[in-house]
């Protein structure tokens, strides 16, 4: 690992010093050095400007949402909140955190995210490792199966019917099993195992008498930390934000609904016009169903997004060492 760190440090601080004893070359080098510096300076300026611009356009809406969630309701409805909070108040948070549904949703989402991610990573790893071995006999067959299933997807209703016949409806397994293996993730992992880990390492291990399991656990996984953390983060975010599977497969089990589903119910209730209003014949959702307030919404938004950001903050340090997907070997 330290090798890679060193290389990175060097890469970030290229030294322009090159030892050469010949005088004419020195003069030429000096000329090159001047050109480099100017060109490089311009490039540096441009890239810095781009990055600053990026920071602004990304940070602004995020700050806005946070500010809106702690601004007073009055300030929000009259649009006075521009960047910073106006009339700070935690009342929205108090209401939101006292809603039973929110706490229940949190618990469920945590469960789905943790368990779902573990299952997903496990399955994807044991799926990717064998097909990354070039001399694995069934490699092409298995790969073809994965590819075919990736291309053709049956759709919501047939999938529902299958799960139904397995008795998974209204059962937490229906959600855990959905999207259990992401085929594209499998390919990313496979490429990583195949291209970024020297085959010699495996050969050496085989000579020492290690079986494939040990190769996987002791060699492949530790060397793939970066890719693994990326894929894991993909999985975590996917599970955290999902609501559709729970909505369809757990209709009667409200005690298993994730946070995002409650959030959706709250946010969408007032912006959704029912069928009869579209037909022009009624205002079903206007006068006979009550609406939620703006204030609550922003608070709920913050509450449902902040934890996942925290997780990301913890996991992201593994990215430093770099993901080697199809990189050229020296």
């Amino acid at each position: 690992m330290s090798n890679i760190d060193e290389i990175q440090i060097e890469a970030e601080n290229p030294s322009n010093e090159i030892a050469a004893p010949v005088a004419p070359v020195k003069r030429m080098r000096k000329a090159n050095k001047i050109q480099d510096t100017r060109g490089d300076k311009v490039l540096e300026g441009i890239t810095t400007a781009i990055l600053v611009f990026l920071l602004i356009i990304v940070a602004y809406p995020v700050i806005y949402v946070c500010s809106a969630s702690i601004s007073s309701a009055g300030a929000l409805t009259s649009g006075r909140v521009v960047l910073w909070p106006v009339e700070p108040t935690l009342s929205a948070y108090k209401v939101v955190l006292s809603m039973d549904d929110v706490l229940l949703g949190y618990k469920n989402t945590l469960f789905y995210t943790v368990v779902g991610t573990i299952f997903q990573m496990f399955m994807q790893i044991i799926c990717a490792y064998p097909i990354s071995k070039r001399n694995f006999q069934g490699r092409s067959v298995y790969t073809k199966v994965i590819v075919v299933t990736m291309l053709v997807s049956a759709g919501m209703i047939p999938m529902y019917l299958v799960k139904q016949s397995l008795g998974l409806i209204d059962n937490v397994w229906a959600v855990l099993v959905s999207g259990l293996i992401g085929s594209s993730n499998v390919f990313i992992l496979r490429t990583n195992f195949r291209n970024s880990i020297p085959g010699e390492l495996f050969d050496a291990a085989a000579i020492d008498g290690a079986n494939e399991f040990q190769c996987l656990v002791k060699i492949a996984l530790p060397l793939s930390k970066a890719t693994l953390s990326v894929i894991t983060l993909y999985a975590i975010v996917g599970h955290w934000n999902s609501y559709m599977t729970a909505m369809i497969y757990l209709p009667a089990r409200q005690d298993l609904w994730p946070l995002q589903l409650f959030l959706r119910n709250l946010l969408i209730s007032s912006s959704n016009i029912g069928a009869s209003a579209q037909e022009g014949g009624g205002n079903a959702n206007a006068s006979n169903v009550a609406e939620a307030t703006e204030q609550l919404r922003y608070a709920l938004i913050v509450i449902s997004t902040v934890p996942i950001l925290a997780v990301y903050g913890v996991v992201q340090k593994y990215f430093k060492t770099g993901v080697m997907v199809g990189s050229v070997k020296g």
Binding site: M156, I157, Y160, L161, Q164, I169, M247, I248, P251, L261, R264, N265, L266, I268, S269, N272, I273, G274, A275, N285
Partner: peptide, 18 residues
């Protein structure tokens, strides 16, 4: 059921299909 019209219609539809 879910609150939004399209949502509960979907839920109902899948329940009926199954």
């Amino acid at each position: 059921f879910a609150t939004g019209a399209q949502d509960y219609k979907t839920q109902l539809s899948t329940m009926i299909a199954g």
